[in-house]
């Protein structure tokens, strides 16, 4: 392919990434509002996320622990924007034809790795413990998630997310994966995996503020914490979009024309909001799992359910 064409395409995609940032920050505020309403509180305004980031980025002094610490800032935001670029958003394919689900899965590891390096370089023991928990959590939720992902890939005979979304939108809503029996099970499993991915309760032990002083983020302040908040905001969008693309047809309900694009985009937005709200409601209802409990939960119960779904799909395909 022509390099300049790819560059233009990438630039357009990054523009989308800023929309993603906007939605993510909105979700942060709205999420806090929802949690507050469940607690019978008023809660912050829905635009609180923007205010927090603006404040953090406008801090007068920032401290760093050397160049490895700075990698956290550079990797976290660029990695998550990159992951967002490789996901189809509301039927708009962005760069997702140039990569596939495995690429997205591994792109999501870039910010985590940068974050982990920065936390490690801060030299704080709490950060080390926090990263350990985050990594173990990652190992835990990836197993059921990966199994459900493979079930999808085998069913649709492709690994490209764009293609999966395309195949799900053939007959409108009725051909979404979630309406196929084994994938109902798979979606339930993947939703719990998503809970761990979003680090919402009961799986928020890696950043437990009162036990290990917010874990990996313990030395982050000012612009560093600001970028991490941006990362968190975009990761909400990316991870919920991943779920929507896999099981809810990426929110595609119509084909062709600008109207369809807008409609798809709105449906996508509503769907990721629903998925996010669901995870928030689970968040408010549960206390925190210890890390070994989370590990056992994912590798025992979730993995068995996911395997059942996988074998079911395999049996359907063969």
């Amino acid at each position: 392919m022509d390099v300049s064409a790819i560059m233009i395409k990438s630039a357009v995609v990054i523009a989308y990434a800023f929309i993603g940032t906007f939605i993510g920050l909105l979700f942060l505020g709205v999420g806090r509002k929802i949690v507050a309403r469940v607690h019978n509180r008023v809660g912050p305004p829905f635009y609180q996320g923007f205010i927090d980031v603006a404040k953090l980025l406008s801090k007068k002094t920032n401290i760093s622990h050397g160049w490895i610490f700075d990698l956290a800032l550079l990797f976290s935001i660029s990695g998550i924007l990159l992951a967002f670029a490789f996901l189809p958003v509301g039927g708009i394919k962005l760069l997702s034809t140039d990569g596939d689900a495995f690429l997205v899965l591994y792109l999501l590891a870039i910010p985590a790795l940068g974050f982990a390096l920065g936390a490690g370089a801060s030299g704080n023991p709490n950060a080390g413990i926090g990263v350990m928990r985050a990594l173990v959590m990652m190992l835990s939720y990836e197993l059921p998630f990966v199994i459900t992902m493979i079930a999808l890939m085998i069913y649709y005979d492709t690994t490209s997310i764009a293609r999966i979304v395309e195949l799900q939108s053939v007959n409108g809503i009725s051909s979404w994966a979630i309406f196929i029996p084994p994938f109902m099970l798979a979606a339930a499993v993947a939703d719990m995996a998503l809970q761990g991915m979003l680090m919402e309760q009961p799986f928020d032990i890696p950043v437990a503020p009162h036990e290990i002083a917010s874990g990996p983020m313990v030395e982050f302040g000012g612009k560093y914490l600001g970028t991490l908040m941006l990362y968190k905001a975009i990761s909400i969008v990316v991870e919920t979009t991943l779920f929507v693309d896999f099981f809810l047809g990426g929110g595609v309900i119509m084909h062709g024309g600008i109207v369809a694009n807008i409609a798809n985009f709105i449906v996508w937005f509503v769907l990721i909001f629903i998925v996010f709200t669901l995870s928030l409601l689970i968040n408010t209802a549960f206390p925190r799992f210890r890390i070994e409990q989370a590990f056992t939960f994912y590798w025992k119960y979730e993995a068995i359910l996911a395997t059942v779904a996988l074998i079911w799909v395999y049996w359907m395909v063969i």
Binding site: R32, A36, H39, N40, R41, V42, G43, P44, P45, Q48, I51, D52, K55, I63, P209, H210, A213, S214, M217, V218, E219, F220, G221, L225
Partner: peptide, 22 residues
């Protein structure tokens, strides 16, 4: 902090470490 007075209304939140706090 909790639902009686709810200072989160004004965007006030408690943080774990001084690096993050104002």
């Amino acid at each position: 902090m909790t639902s009686r007075y709810d200072m989160e209304r004004f965007g006030i939140a408690s943080m774990a470490t001084p690096r993050q706090a104002d």
